[in-house]
Write a protein that binds this DNA or RNA. Structure first.
Lengths: 154, 154
DNA sequence: TACTCTATATAAATCGTCTATGCAACAGGC
DNA sequence: GCCTGTTGCATAGACGATTTATATAGAGTA
C-alpha cells in the first residue's frame, strides 16, 4: 500500500472531512429539524429518556424539547409514558414508526455516499474502506465530547 | 498494505461517513443558518452572483434568499451592487468580513476533526490521511450532483 | 407603445427556537 | 404530617428563518 503519496497534514484531514460533512447534511431531506432527528436517534440508541434529559443531551432549552416531543408525538414517532417512580416526569419512548424513520433516514444518508463510490477509482474506494474504523472512532470521540460538555453545563 | 482486514461493504462506508457528518454539523456554532453559511461559501468560491441565482444554487425560494442576503448585508458580510447591464438585478458580493467569517468557520469545523486525531492510533491516522483524496472526491461528486439537480428544477 | 418576461421585494403564514413563568410533585427538616 | 425549597414539565409570548402568493420595476420585442 500506498502511503507513498504526498504528506497529508492534520489540517487537510480536518478540512476534507468537515467539507464533506456540510455537503452531505445539506442534501438530506428537510422534512424534520436536525434536532428532532438527533433526538429520535438518541432515543433509539439509548432507550426511553425524560424530556429535560433530552433537552440537555441535544443542547436545546427544555421548552424547546417539550415542543419538539409534542410534534413527534403528534406524528406518531414517540410516546410519552408515565414514570412510575416520579409522577412529574414523562418518559419519552420511540415507537416502531420512529425506529423506522431513523433507519430510513440513515439509509438515505449513507446512500448519498455509497452512490458516489462507483465514480471513484479502485484505490480511492479501498482507501475509504480502510478508513472506516478511523471515521467511526472520530465520531465516537466527538459524541463523547459533546455529551461531556452537555452534562458539565447543567 | 493493509487491506488485510475484514471486508468492508459500501454500506458500511456510507454509514460511517454519514454518521460522522451528522455529529460534526451538530457541534458547529449555531450563530447562522446552514443556508447562510453555504451561501457565503458559494460567494467566496464563485464570485458575485445574483439573488435568484443564489436561491437556485442553495435550493431555497427566492424571497428566502432576499431575506437572507438582507441579513448578511446588515451584518456587513455581503454587499449588494448594481449590475451595470441590468438595473433590475442585484449582484451580491462577499466582503472581507464575509471571507473572514467563512475561513474561520471552516477552521472551527476542521478543528473538530483534527482535535480528535491525537486520540487515534497511528494506523488510524494514516488510514485517514490516505483517504483524504477520496473524501474530497466524494464531496466534489455530491456537490456536482446537487448543482445539477438545482439547475434541472428551474 | 404596449405586451410579456425577468429580477427582486413585500406580505402574511408557519415553524423552531428562546426566555420567563406557572403548576404539580418530590424531598428534607421540623 | 406539614412547610419550604427544588425539580420536571408545560404554557405564553417573542423572534428569526422559511414558505407561497403577490407587487413593482426594468428588459426585450412586436
Amino acid at each position: 500500500m500506498l502511503t507513498g503519496m504526498a504528506e497529508v497534514s492534520s489540517d487537510e484531514i480536518g478540512e476534507a472531512v468537515y467539507a464533506l460533512a456540510t455537503e452531505l447534511v445539506r442534501q438530506m431531506p428537510r422534512d424534520m429539524s436536525l434536532t428532532s432527528v438527533a433526538t429520535l436517534s438518541t432515543l433509539v440508541r439509548r432507550g426511553p429518556r425524560r424530556v429535560t434529559e433530552l433537552a440537555v443531551t441535544e443542547g436545546v432549552a427544555q421548552p424547546s424539547m417539550t415542543a419538539l416531543i409534542t410534534a413527534l408525538e403528534r406524528d406518531g414517532l414517540v410516546e410519552r409514558r408515565a414514570d412510575p417512580r416520579d409522577r412529574r416526569a414523562a418518559l419519552v419512548t420511540v415507537t416502531d414508526a420512529g425506529r423506522d424513520y431513523v433507519a430510513n433516514r440513515r439509509r438515505v444518508g449513507a446512500e448519498l455516499v455509497t452512490s458516489t463510490l462507483a465514480e471513484l477509482s479502485e484505490a480511492e474506494r479501498s482507501a475509504l474502506a480502510d478508513a472506516v474504523d478511523a471515521l467511526r472512532r472520530v465520531r465516537e470521540i466527538r459524541a463523547a465530547h459533546r455529551e461531556e460538555a452537555a452534562t458539565a453545563t447543567r
